[in-house]
């Protein structure tokens, strides 16, 4: 029986959420950015908050996030997404606000904004895509690049004696009292995607309670920058990235009764 005929017998259980626009992603084949975009927008749809959510896109591969996310959005200068999000949240305190940034954006040029937004306990969700490299500009070394990692600006491997060690920004912000919920996830397997979705759902629910900043890191891949096939990035993430960026909750609200 042709697949098409089957579909009217079977029940549609999974398809694109309306909170994603009908625009093909420009990301490289296998890039986890679009998976992260989709999961966030699925949660926005499931919580029914499309009309109350405002997102902030960074400068980086996901600079075009607003082409895909079907919510009101603002495009921030490089590194400043959490400051832009602060500005939005302060004048629209009852709306859901999230910023979405890569590692160069959030942990290099935007470090001060990242630290201080969390330190103020800004009631926003900060999504941090950590693929250990500057993707959009062609694969340069990032603060989260691993020791010995070869990039276009560490052609002989990241020399920690010269340019230091990977910056554990997520652990750093978890120490700040303003951080309510800090968790590190990945989207490289179906199960990881399910867990990431739960974390995003929790974050939006926490945001309604105005109790501080939710900070979700997504250990992600960069097939082009890493010069690997998408399938190979799965193993690289598990064997090389996870030892430096272990998954799981780093900080949860004390009365974890959500």
């Amino acid at each position: 029986m042709e697949t098409e005929e089957l579909t009217n017998e079977l029940e549609l259980v999974y398809s694109k959420p309306e909170t994603l626009k009908d625009v093909p992603f420009h990301y490289c084949p296998g890039c986890s950015h679009s998976v992260a975009h989709r999961v966030i927008m699925e949660v926005v749809q499931e919580l029914g908050i499309q009309e109350e959510t405002i997102g902030v896109a960074p400068v980086g591969c996901s600079v075009f996030a607003y082409h895909y996310m079907n919510v009101d959005m603002q495009q921030a200068a490089h590194g400043r997404a959490s400051a832009v999000a602060t500005g939005i949240k302060r004048v629209l305190p009852d709306k859901y606000v999230f910023s979405y940034q890569g590692d160069g954006d959030l942990a290099a040029i935007g470090t001060a904004e990242t630290i201080h937004t969390v330190n103020r306990g800004e009631n926003i969700l900060m999504v941090f895509i950590n693929n250990g490299i500057y993707g959009m500009t062609g694969g340069q070394m990032a603060p989260t690049s691993l020791p010995g990692q070869i990039t276009s600006t560490s052609p002989y491997g990241r020399d920690t004696a010269d340019v230091g060690f990977p910056l554990k920004i997520t652990e750093l912000v978890a120490m700040l009292p303003g951080a309510l919920y800090v968790s590190r996830h990945a989207v490289h397997t179906p199960n990881a995607v399910r867990k990431f979705k739960k974390a995003i759902t929790k974050s939006f629910e926490y945001q309604k309670q105005k109790r501080g900043t939710c900070f979700i890191e997504v250990v992600s891949n960069c097939p082009s920058g890493w010069k690997m096939t998408p399938v190979d990035t799965i193993k690289y993430i598990e064997e090389v990235m996870f030892p430096s960026y272990p998954l799981g909750d780093i900080k949860v609200p004390k009365d974890e009764n959500i």
Binding site: E11, V13, H33, V35, P190, K197
Partner: peptide
Amino acid sequence: VNCALVCPEVAIKVYRKAKGTKKVV
């Protein structure tokens, strides 16, 4: 639904037998 969860292009629609289907995670 595993395939659709990891698909970066949201290119996959998934169908399942109606009887007692699990709620979509």
